[in-house]
Amino acid sequence: MRQSYLLSGALALFLASCQLVEFSPNQTYVPVAERNLTSRNLRQLATAGPSLGDTVRFVFVGDTQRFYDETEQFVASVNQQRGIDFVLVAGDISDFGLLREFRWVNQRLQRLRVPYLTVIGNHDVVGNGRAVYQQVYGPLNYSFLYKGTRFVCLDTNGREYGFGRQVPDLAWLRRQLADTAARTVVVSHVPPTDEDFDPALVQGYAATLRACPNLVLHLSGHVHRYTAAQPFHDGITYLTTYSLEKHRYHILTMWGHRQFRLETVVYGAES
């Protein structure tokens, strides 16, 4: 018995020192349990419970970057909400694209009672952040269907790729939006109205969204504040949300064809 305690103690110490012996702050290596969180969390979402009706209700929040104290308060607040399906984080999970930052954020967000999903932000692409994101969360572009709603999450951090007309991947986006049966939400970090969005792709992006008859909203972060507008005057609403430091988040409820309701929650003390 004592031997097994000793053994497990030694193992814990060994594992802890493995984490300590960091080859580079830019490294991507994480324990298996902390990999592919997007598909893990989607599985958790799929088995969360019977999906009654077609109403989907989720928390939408922006940049968690370097706001660890605030993230803990955020988790405490969301865990008090009733009837939330999941939490959507609009990118900039990290500030410096470093592995430890991603882990610090996940250690806090995994205490949410509901699964959380993310989209990659420009700060997450810094250094080797892109590879870290792929290791920790998974693909940079992905979509999922939940309660009759298609969520399309994609990388729009054009500046990080030198505005090479590759990001966002419009061909991929068109394929996702071809599912005309489902109510659709597109989520990205940098909104197309921002100077960090590849200027050569702005019109093509807007046109792709315009062509989707079931689009409810386009959701983004990056600007750290709430904005809502129809910048292309085409009936498509582009919404941005607060960063964690603002002590505010949104709850979005969607039902019917394109109906939605937006609530703002204020929590914790503003510092």
Partner: peptide
């Protein structure tokens, strides 16, 4: 920097490396 701005959330052990 991350630690200094998040003294409640992070601990000194979080930011240590070993060689």
């Amino acid at each position: 920097l991350s630690y200094v701005q998040n003294m409640k959330g992070l601990s000194p052990a979080d930011i240590l490396t070993l060689s």
